[in-house]
Design a binder for these strands. Structure first.
Length: 969
RNA sequence: GGGCCCGUGGCGAAAUCGGCAGACGCAGCGGACUUAAAAUCUGCAGCCGCAAGGCGUGUGGGUUCAAUUCCCACCGGGCCCA
């Protein structure tokens, strides 16, 4: 038997295949390599040095690859986690071989409700359960062999981390958005300017006062209206069940995103972020990043910029006008009534005039939950008894209130144009209000039976004051706005759907705000030198039952009641002995994830939230077109990438909230000079959801997987009843008993097989069902590759002495294709290419010289490096047995990606199909570089072609060199 | 209701500057090896048909020498926003 012929090395009858690549063998190999990454100093894994540290190579380009860090739940890793993590691990290993400095960190998003709820039930501190969950997650991630730089690991609950979360919040608190330069600036600059100019400001009760004449309190109140983090009274979404208020973003169809509980609206004083001041930049800068179109669209819609007009309607008998926002000022003549939200202050005035019916309606409407308000199709409302004047027509129009107008949108009041708005139309019909057509839409007749919406030409829109008839919608809008501005009763206005971000939560398990209040309720920041403000332990975590939200931290009386000096308030602001009370709300779960990618750059830095040098190195880089220029020191839009992180991979469920919040924080930090780039994430990618199979009865109810049997291929019945059920794809869930535990899969096949399977399932971005039966395919691939290289009896290398020309050629192609596919994140096709190579090499019958099958040691060494990003333990083991590195330690970590010869990618001769009328009739072998005319001549003289033409006249011959020939007759 | 995305063998999928549809894997069927099975190797395999051949990328149209790919309409599924 030739030792060069791996495939014919038939296994002996039994027993002594002690080096066969079985699951147990794979597990042993993997665990040995993983154990060797535990270093003597207690650290683990591969460390990537920062600039200035020993071992840092400044000549290499950087690649910062980020995974969305997980929330460490008690349930451990889900199979969905390793999907994205394997993808980034492959790219990072590849980039490492390609000569990059690679930053690939991991950490824990560890504040949040589940741990707090568990604490409420058990009394165990959330930190205890969370740290236990983190330990388990870390163990699982290491078992996958991901090459994270564990020296940079942290959790958002670490005081050393949230110290800086609090610090960043203080930056926002001490900043304002200057609209003239469209960026954040220190509020001290605003204060200095007001002092310098001795500006006249508006104080309480709309009185005007010189800055120098203002009291300290008045100055403070004025500055507070500018802070990027400010205390605002908002109608909030109060969720009694969760015991907290929620952001608009956390509510879906009137219920909490988490848990699906009802949400009530109530006014409350809360910490807010003035994210709306960044609306335009958040919108514009989406053009600077390489993100999925879907995600960009979602953020654009979420910000919801709309151009229109603000119009002030005079109210009979009232001093103040009623202001509305409309995107269709051109329909002003059609405004036949007005509607305000029940919470609108003008309603209170109307009630004060003694309108009992109105009071009754408002009470009823206010007590309706958002669910009821949105669910009811029937229009409800009540006339306020007030009348407004339509400035265009001079007509008296009634002011109504209705719950379909929400206080949170626009100004909480609308001018109703029933002829051209569906909801206004229904309302007008229900209450017999006038309907006047003012837009003639091409091809759509206005019948009075329904509203017509869209653009057209103005009709019925001319009065002594204003003439619009005949104008296009766009022109009419401009004309109306110009007229409103001239009259001083309105103006062009840009409105956003985006609201300011409610940042307070009535929760325990979150970052405390570094702020205290004096007896009068004035707020004072805690100096940075007193951070972190550590979360105090509690004995009882349960929510405080109350009509109003009561944060659990209020129970920590010893902590909340302190003095200004002890808390760390600047003595210039407040004498140190002054009694103060701490803020008892905490920050939401989003806080920690808004900047964690920055902390990874220098996660142990004690003197700043991120070391400026490390931040600049990892976040700032040149565009490809400017790659020959020296490394940048400051951002330059023409030559630098706007986004810092080179690749960010995570689920699309974070496409709006997390990715919008992080951008907002990043832009604030950018404006204040703390980070180098205007955007945090250059390229964003969403991996698809891993689903599972489930079974459905005829009535569409679902049956847990363990209650179903397969009677024959593809046919399933419910075991208990014998009734037929259909196999469908569904989300993994405990109730359906179709959740796959990664630990089990690794035990059965090894981590390398798990990694390969998830990458081979399909495109990374696609949602795909887990099919346990398919795993064996990639496992067999590894077994075949192993057998190709290793003698299963001795464990020694089994290599060909001479390279086979065909295999060498295929190897070059594989190196090329796998590298290309990794860059495109097309891992399934990369793996298919490697399988083809191994199949060809293990099938000596297909080779030119069957006695020289398999691969040489040199070929195996190149193959191992191609496989390494995907199945690192396997590849490192193979590398060690080939003598390329020691059997343990870094393996191929410091190696290079194999090169290929472009000449090997093209064949000398290729097969081309010849079609007649689009049907293939013959196949032609032609030289790869043959001219079209030569191919045509060859085709027309081919016997099968002549037969197929059967003497008919050839009208046209289309030759696409390298592709095909089509003959038209 | 509006917007976006997706429909390819029994299954996961591949191929889209328009150019041989179904690479690769699973499941399936046959053969070799084996007392047998597993494992391995090897062959077959879109559908109809003994074959020649025909039909095939959700359905119907269109553009083109040529359409999974581009355009229109519809059907089905998903996601987001109302």
């Amino acid at each position: 038997m030739s030792a060069t012929n791996a495939a014919s090395a038939k296994p002996a009858d039994s027993g002594d295949l002690s080096h066969r690549y079985t699951a147990a063998y794979a597990n042993a190999v993997e665990e040995r390599w993983q154990a060797s990454l535990a270093h003597a100093d207690g650290s683990y894994g591969h460390h990537q040095a920062n600039p200035g540290e020993p071992g840092f190579d400044a000549s290499k380009p950087k690649f910062y690859c980020l995974d969305m860090f997980p929330y460490p739940s008690g349930a451990g890793l889900h199979v969905g986690h390793p999907e994205g993590y394997t993808a980034t691990d492959i790219i990072c290993r590849y980039k490492k071989l390609k000569g990059f400095n690679v930053l690939h960190p991991m950490g824990w998003d560890a504040f949040g409700l589940p741990a707090e709820q568990y604490a409420i039930q058990t009394g165990v501190h959330p930190e205890v359960t969370t740290k236990k969950a983190i330990d388990n997650f870390r163990r699982q991630l290491r078992r996958f062999g991901f090459m994270y730089d564990w020296s940079r690991e942290f959790a958002t609950i670490d005081p050393d981390y949230y110290k800086w979360t609090q610090w960043i919040w203080l930056q926002a608190y001490s900043s304002w958005f200057d609209p003239t330069v469209k960026k954040a600036r220190p509020i001290a600059e605003l204060e200095a300017r007001l002092t310098r100019e001795d500006a006249t400001i508006t104080v309480e009760n709309a009185a005007s006062k010189k800055w120098s004449a203002c009291s300290k309190r008045e100055k403070q109140a004025y500055l507070d209206t500018f802070r990027l983090a400010y205390l605002g009274t908002q109608t909030v979404n109060w969720c009694p069940k969760l015991g907290t208020v929620l952001a608009n973003e956390e509510i879906i169809d009137g219920r909490s995103e988490r848990g699906g509980f009802p949400v009530l609206r109530m006014p409350l004083k809360q910490w807010m972020f003035r994210i709306t001041s960044y609306a335009d930049r958040l919108l514009e800068d989406l053009a600077l990043v390489d993100w999925p179109d879907m995600t960009r669209t979602l953020q654009t819609e979420w910000i919801g910029r709309s151009e229109g007009a603000e119009i002030h309607f005079a109210i009979e008998g009232e001093r103040d006008a009623l202001t509305v926002f409309t995107t269709r000022p051109d329909t002003l003549f059609g405004a036949t009534y007005m509607v305000v939200a029940p919470e609108h202050q003008i309603v209170a005035k109307a009630i004060a005039r003694g309108n009992a019916e109105l009071a009754k309606y408002v009470d009823w409407a206010k007590n309706r939950s958002d669910i009821d308000r949105q669910a009811s199709k029937e229009k409800t409302g009540c006339a306020t008894g007030l009348f407004a004047i339509n400035p265009a027509t001079g007509a008296r129009i009634p002011v109504w209130t209705a719950d379909y107008v929400l206080m949170g949108y626009g100004t909480g009041a609308i001018m109703a144009v029933p002829a051209h708005d569906e909801r206004d139309f229904e309302f007008a019909k229900a209450f017999q209000l006038a309907i006047v057509q003012v837009v003639d839409i091409d091809g759509v007749a206005f019948t009075g039976e329904s509203a017509t919406s869209g653009e057209g030409r103005a009709v019925n829109s001319t009065s002594a004051q204003l003439a619009l008839d005949g104008m296009t919608t766009a022109d009419a809008k401009k004309a109306v706005i110009a007229w409103l501005e001239k009259q001083g009763i309105g103006a062009l206005r840009i409105n956003y759907r985006l609201r300011d971000w409610l940042f307070s939560r009535q929760r325990y398990w979150g970052e405390p705000f570094p702020i205290v209040y004096d007896a009068e309720g004035n707020h004072y920041p805690i100096a940075a030198s007193h951070l972190p403000l550590v979360l105090p332990p509690l004995a009882d975590y349960s929510p405080i039952e109350s009509d109003t939200p009561q944060p659990p931290l209020a129970k920590a009386r010893d902590w909340t009641h302190t003095t200004a000096g002890a808390a760390g308030v600047d003595a210039a602001d407040l004498p140190p002995e002054t009694a103060v009370v701490r803020e008892t709300n905490t920050m939401p779960g989003w806080a920690g994830s808004c900047w964690y990618y920055l902390r990874y750059c220098s996660s142990k830095d004690a003197s700043s939230f991120v070391s400026p040098e490390a931040e600049r190195y990892w976040m700032l880089s040149r565009k490809k077109s400017a790659s020959t220029m020296p490394a940048p020191t400051t951002y330059d839009a023409a030559t630098c990438h706007a986004g810092g992180v080179d690749l960010y991979v995570g689920g699309s469920e974070h496409a709006v909230l997390h990715c919008l919040y992080a951008r907002f924080w990043h832009k604030m930090l950018f404006d204040l000079g703390h980070v180098s780039t205007p955007e945090p994430f250059g390229k964003l990618f969403h991996q698809g959801l891993i689903t599972s199979y489930a079974f459905q009865r005829a009535d569409r109810s679902l049956v847990p997987t363990d209650q179903v049997s397969e009677v024959k291929e593809g046919e399933f019945v419910e075991t208990a009843t014998g009734q037929k059920v259909t196999q469908i794809v569904a989300k993994m869930s405990k109730s359906l008993k179709n959740v796959v535990n990664p630990d089990d899969v690794i035990a059965e096949y090894g981590a390398d097989t798990f990694r390969l399977y998830e990458m081979y399932m399909g495109p990374l971005e696609a949602s795909k069902p887990w099919n346990t039966r398919d795993i064996v395919g990639v496992f067999r691939f590894l077994q075949r590759a192993w057998r190709l290289a290793i003698d299963e009896k001795s464990g020694e290398i089994l290599a060909a002495a001479q390279p086979d020309a065909k295999i060498e050629r295929l190897l070059h192609r594989t190196i090329h294709k796998v590298g290309d596919d990794i860059e495109k994140l097309s891992f399934n096709t990369a793996i298919a290419a490697m399988i083809e190579l191994v199949n060809a090499a293990t099938r000596p019958t297909g080779l030119a010289d069957p006695t020289h099958g398999g691969m040489t040691r040199d070929q195996l060494a190149r193959f191992a490096r191609v496989l390494w990003p995907f199945a690192p333990h396997f590849a490192d083991e193979l590398g060690a047995r080939l003598g390329l590195h020691p059997a343990g330690g870094a393996g191929f970590f410091g190696s290079t990606w194999p090169t290929y010869d472009p000449a090997m990618l093209v064949d000398d001769e290729i097969e081309m199909p010849v079609q007649i009328q689009g049907k293939i009739k013959a196949r032609l072998m032609v030289p790869a570089k043959a001219e079209a005319s030569a191919i045509e001549a060859l085709a027309l003289t081919h016997a099968d072609v002549i037969a197929a033409i059967a003497g008919r006249a050839v009208k046209k011959v289309v030759v696409v060199p390298g592709r095909m020939v089509n003959i038209v007759i």
